[in-house]
Amino acid sequence: MRESWAMAYLKGTFCAGYRKTLRCEGINAFIKGFLKSTDSILELVHSLDRVVKDYRNNEVMAQFYYMYYSPVLTTSLEAMELFASKVYTRAVFKEVKKQIKGVATLLFRGRDSISTTCVYRFSRIGK
């Protein structure tokens, strides 16, 4: 029943294609890489300690790249690309950059207004 109403609260919220369940599944998969079913309690605690340290290290690395990483701007939409590099993490920025590249190959052909709707016409470069 919860699944039917939870999406209503997320409607209109930009999540960049990610949902909390995906993040939990990712963390679970990450932890499973460190654990074995034959581990003792002591080995389990040591493994979980390694998981936490590794996870924190990944967060620190992501924060470092966010603060000090200057991307190479490769499209004609430099301002948009630079803004996206500052807003998103490095991994998400790579996905957003693909979309920016797709938009950069479009040429604006015109705009028509029909009542309260605007129709924009584009074509791809070379077509």
Rank of each mutant, 00 (worst) to 15 (best):
E3N: 14
E3I: 03
S4L: 12
M7I: 05
A8N: 15
Y9L: 11
Y9A: 12
K11V: 07
T13C: 08
F14W: 07
C15S: 09
C15Y: 14
A16P: 00
G17F: 03
Y18T: 15
R19E: 15
K20C: 10
K20I: 13
L22F: 15
C24K: 07
E25W: 02
G26Y: 01
G26A: 03
I27C: 08
I27Y: 07
I27F: 15
N28R: 04
A29H: 13
F30Y: 08
F30D: 12
G33H: 07
F34I: 11
L35G: 01
L35T: 01
K36H: 02
S37E: 13
S37V: 13
S37W: 05
T38C: 12
T38N: 14
D39T: 11
D39E: 11
S40C: 13
I41H: 10
L42Y: 12
L42M: 14
E43M: 08
H46N: 15
H46L: 13
H46C: 13
S47L: 03
S47Y: 03
S47N: 10
L48W: 00
D49T: 09
R50C: 07
K53D: 12
D54H: 10
Y55T: 09
Y55M: 06
R56M: 07
N57H: 06
N57V: 05
N58T: 14
N58S: 12
E59A: 10
E59M: 13
M61R: 08
A62G: 12
F64K: 10
F64N: 10
Y65A: 02
Y66P: 00
M67N: 15
M67A: 02
M67E: 12
Y68S: 06
Y69S: 00
S70R: 06
V72R: 01
V72T: 12
V72W: 02
V72K: 05
V72Q: 08
V72Y: 09
L73C: 04
L73Y: 02
L73D: 00
T74H: 05
T74C: 04
T74G: 04
T75K: 01
S76W: 01
L77K: 01
E78Q: 13
E78C: 08
E78I: 13
A79C: 11
M80S: 08
M80W: 05
M80T: 04
E81T: 00
L82C: 12
F83E: 02
A84P: 02
S85Y: 00
S85L: 01
S85F: 00
V87Q: 11
T89P: 05
R90S: 11
A91D: 15
V92R: 11
V92D: 10
F93M: 07
E95F: 03
V96A: 03
K98H: 03
K98A: 07
Q99L: 12
Q99Y: 07
Q99P: 04
I100T: 06
I100Y: 00
K101N: 05
G102H: 09
G102W: 07
G102T: 14
G102P: 01
T105D: 14
T105V: 07
L106N: 05
L107E: 14
F108S: 05
F108C: 05
R109W: 10
G110K: 15
D112K: 07
S113G: 08
S113H: 03
I114M: 09
I114S: 12
I114C: 08
S115V: 05
T116F: 09
T116N: 08
T116A: 12
C118Q: 14
C118Y: 03
C118K: 15
V119C: 08
Y120I: 06
R121A: 15
F122W: 14
F122C: 04
R124A: 08
R124F: 11
I125F: 03
G126S: 10
K127Y: 09
